[in-house]
Design a binder for these strands. Structure first.
Length: 422
RNA sequence: GGAGAGAUGGUCGAGUUGGUUUAAGGCACCGGUCUUGAAAACCGGCGUAGGUGCAAGCCUACCCUGGGUUCGAAUCCCAGUCUCUCCGCCA
């Protein structure tokens, strides 16, 4: 949610910024609703003040034994008018709210306009592995090595699901442990949240109402949906709270599977486990004071990169153009990992600064010590990491001529073998 | 799933036969006086939001949520949510 004051005071500036990510922006109607609303509020509040004043007089009039009938009927009439005007105000409130709730975040000044094609590679780490033999693709590798069972996964969950088995499950579990251990030692608090969330959680995160179709909803539940990312849970952890300035930043991470409908997605060219309806992810999250959020974003990207580096995998970092960022986010960097067989870099982490956008939706504030006033916090999230693209990258980048996979040394604590063999 | 109890500002808590409570009071917290410093004591401040005003301020709303009754609702009525206790069922 944007601050409507920004639009009142400088509609052109906001419009210009939003046009970096949207086709068209028009505040004319919004501003007329807003003006009308404020006029009506002044009117009705004056009436309410009058009603309060007179109502307070009535007991003493009665006490004196006089007849208050004149006042009663006048106030009855006034109350009816107030009720009617209040209805109009709340209708306007609703319209304004719906309009505001549908607006995405304002892209940061240094974020380029346009969609994917304007994403900028800002860093490259390592080199594309060269093979002295004919490398296999990950679908073949994980199948040959019995790491992933696609057929039985689809038998159980339908198209877009797979099952980890044997060493594949161990490898997955080792990766998650590696992430978790790293985050704990960096001072992040481990959260295991509910996987079923209420509608409000989706709203605060900025996924609802616009992207309700992207999540699975529980048909016979109490209106919950299954989380598409742990971000949705973590951003709601402090919803409707006023935090203390000196307890910020709050640093959390969570492990959950992520469930996504991926309706209308480009699955056809993405074999294997590049895009599924369920994947595992460890998610980092920070609540910060506004002036520290850029620094926090750097920290999050750095942490995600360090995890990939630890695995010894070639990747690059891209700064996303405005329209490629999620609606709630003002700035996003993706860490993209090299998938040799596809000749392409695929996202394994997305690190974003939401600024105060989610905080406004979720009413998440802190009290500034120097002023005693409340302000909205900034919220940031970053995957650390998602495994569904990582595992293909690992098996493809670290495959050897005999078809086995070299196990990264950071994982040996949990996966006690040098290579994964058939 | 059943029964009971409850929900008031950061926290505890008064108010619940509707109208001198404009939500008392304690604690915590902040500022000040005193002190070499601290504590204690004393003085003052101290919920959130919307509107209006250059400002001081003023007005309005909010006592779990949403409706309703009334000139007037923390207080009465209806529906719901959550928490606690107990019982049942279940991994």
């Amino acid at each position: 949610m944007l601050d409507i004051n920004l639009i009142r005071e400088n509609p052109e500036k906001v419009k210009k910024a939003l046009l970096k990510r949207m086709g068209s922006v028009d505040f004319t109607e919004l501003l007329s609703w807003d003006t009308k609303r404020r006029e009506l509020i002044v009117e009705t509040e004056n009436m309410k003040a009058e009603r309060n004043r007179v109502s307070k007089l009535i007991p003493s009039i009665k006490k004196e034994g006089k007849d208050a009938g004149v006042y009663l009927s006048a106030m009855k009439k006034l109350s009816d008018t107030i009720t009617e005007r209040d209805k109009t105000v709340s209708e306007l409130d609703g319209r304004i709210h719906d309009f505001m709730a549908a607006l995405p975040n304002i892209p940061a000044d240094d974020v380029l306009a346009g969609d994917k094609e304007n994403n900028k590679v800002v860093r490259i780490w390592g080199d594309k592995p060269e093979f002295s033999f004919k490398p296999k693709d990950h679908v073949q590798l994980v199948t040959d090595l019995h790491l992933i069972d696609y057929e039985r996964g689809a038998k159980l969950g339908g198209n877009g699901f797979w099952a980890y088995r044997g060493n594949g499950a161990l490898l997955e579990w080792a990766l998650l442990n590696y992430f978790i251990e790293t985050h704990i030692s960096d001072g992040y608090e481990f959260i295991l949240p509910p996987h079923l969330l209420t509608w409000n959680c989706g709203y605060t995160a900025g996924q609802f109402p616009k992207f309700e179709e992207d999540v699975y909803r529980i048909e016979n539940g109490e209106g919950q949906f299954i989380l598409p990312t742990a971000e949705t849970a973590l951003v709601n952890f402090h919803r409707d709270e006023i935090l203390k300035e000196d307890e910020l930043p709050k640093k959390y991470f969570a492990f959950t599977p992520c469930y996504r409908k991926e309706a209308g997605s480009y699955r056809s060219d993405e074999r294997g486990m590049i895009r599924g309806h369920q994947f595992n992810k460890v998610e980092m999250f920070q609540y910060t004071v506004p002036e520290d959020s850029e620094k926090a974003l750097d920290e999050l990207i750095g942490k995600a990169e360090k995890l990939v580096q630890g695995l010894g995998l070639h990747y690059r970092v891209s700064k996303l153009a405005a329209a490629d960022c999620s609606a709630s986010m003002g700035k996003t960097f993706d860490i993209e990992i090299w998938i040799p067989s596809m000749n392409i870099y695929k996202e394994v982490s997305s690190a974003s600064n939401g600024y105060d956008y989610q905080a406004r939706r979720g009413n998440i504030r802190f009290r500034r010590i120097s002023t005693g006033k409340t302000e909205y916090v900034h919220t940031l999230n970053a995957s650390g990491l998602a495994t569904s693209r990582l595992l293909p990258a690992i098996v493809e980048q670290l495959q050897q001529e005999d078809g086995s996979i070299k196990v990264p040394s950071v994982l040996k604590k949990w996966l006690n073998m040098d290579t994964i063999k058939a």
